[in-house]
Nucleic acid binder design. Structure first.
Lengths: 254, 254
DNA sequence: GACAGGCGGTCGACATTGTCGACCGCAGTG
DNA sequence: CACTGCGGTCGACAATGTCGACCGCCTGTC
């Protein structure tokens, strides 16, 4: 039976729909958005609700995602081998560099943040674990595109969305940048996604040299850069952290 | 069609199974654990994999939870109204009390942590958003049991699991404690779950006075307590934070 | 190095199962 | 006070997911 299970695919589509829309959605909205009969959508929603994946506002009757998803997402992090091995290295990197550290893996057409170390001694920050960043405009993403053919495939041919005046929106430009990244072994992104923010990324590989994720530091451009280029000392820190994590992944495999 | 969709319930059971077991599970393990035919389990797993809810280790063929769950769990937090309104108050409470702050909601037979503010100026801490705490032995849980009949129902009649010598394991003891909690309007838990840890909790209500969650501070017993009782000043801080959040929830409803 | 045992994965027949579209009661609205 | 929209239900139908036997592969073993 090499076909996907219809009801499951539909349930997944419904949850993605609920995740996308900011506000809660009604039964009719869901069914029309996905082209399903109202009864069908209701059956799926009712089951998802029983399982805790979806909650219903008792007043309006509208649906939103449920708490069970949060719990399962946490379990995903617990099992995640890359994340487990990277925890301590990411902490060290944040302390050494004095900047925010992100750890990401390829997921669909973006980079999913699986770990986030706050900048040491700084004010209120929002945890971004579980959020996505674009592939073509971030240090985390570009280093994956450079080394992982799957990531390059997910990126497509563009043109890509533009976030600032520095964003590379054409495939040829990104590919040229990726060649450079492969040559020197690290990536950067200076105000390509957010104004005033620069980052430096490096690849994490498993023991067979397969790319499995990336690590980066991110901070205000005036602290991360010097004379228009990222500081070499920070590059060295990031690369050595990436190597350390890769070595860790290669070493133990229970 | 007032019956749950079979394949969906089974898929949910599989995901919960994968979340429970620490390590990755093989196809046969999954199918026997749930009493499913191997072909059936495989079909569900294949679909879940396509949707990103489950990942397969290409080497061993074993399955684990997928990244999409993390992303959807994050979306759940984004929509969560209680959490959104409580963010700033929780921060203030942590700063005023100088201790860790948790925000929880009832989920199944436990309290799901939906927000976690680290203790100010302290060493490395693990984020516990998405994890569960017991109902009968924590300040977060007991205040829910005291005010929310649903939570009391989920708790059951015991005896409950014992974590330390202070854990209340009998229903009558918990119910007596809950009466006290209702009388004075706040809950505490002194080394009932973890040795050396004490917490103070209070209820959060929506605008119709329905219990929707709870907030607590948690810290070393020697800082939170005095002469064997929790410090009144900390109790006042927690209660005022809970009132502020409740007021916020009642005020705006877009 | 042939064998056995376990694995993940496939196949096709069967009937269970999910799907569909019409229908219901209710709430808000002009 | 009809009317329109909502969430939810119902029952017939057949498409759908389920089952258990089977396949090829790898691994460990004697």
């Amino acid at each position: 039976m090499p076909g996907p299970i219809q009801s499951l695919s539909r349930a997944a589509a419904i949850m993605r729909l609920l995740a996308g829309g900011e506000r809660r959605l009604g039964l009719s909205e869901v069914s029309t958005a996905l082209g399903l009969a109202k009864g069908t959508a209701h059956g799926i929603l009712r089951t998802l609700q029983q399982e805790g994946f979806v909650e219903q506002d008792p007043e309006s009757g509208k649906y939103q995602l449920g708490a069970e998803l949060l719990r399962l997402g946490q379990s995903y992090l617990d099992v995640h081998e890359l994340r487990a091995r990277a925890l301590v290295w990411a902490d060290d990197l944040a302390r050494a560099a004095g900047e925010t550290v992100y750890l990401g893996v390829l997921h669909q057409q973006g980079v999913l943040i699986v770990h986030h170390v706050f900048r040491p001694d700084d004010t209120r920050q929002v945890l971004e674990v579980g959020s996505m960043q674009p592939l073509h405009s971030t240090a985390l993403g570009k280093v994956l595109v450079a080394y992982d053919p799957v990531a390059r495939g997910e990126l497509g041919d563009g043109p890509y969305e533009s976030y600032t005046v520095h964003t590379l929106t054409e495939a040829v430009d990104v590919d040229a940048e990726c060649a450079l990244i492969r040559e020197r072994g690290w990536s950067d992104s200076i105000e390509e996604t957010w104004e005033g923010v620069a980052s430096i990324g490096a690849l994490i590989q498993d023991r067979r040299r397969n790319p499995v994720g990336s690590v980066c530091i991110s901070g205000p451009v005036e602290r991360v850069c010097e004379d228009g280029f990222v500081k070499p000392s920070l590059v060295a820190s990031v690369r050595s952290a990436a190597r350390a994590i890769s070595r860790d992944l290669g070493a133990g495999r229970f």
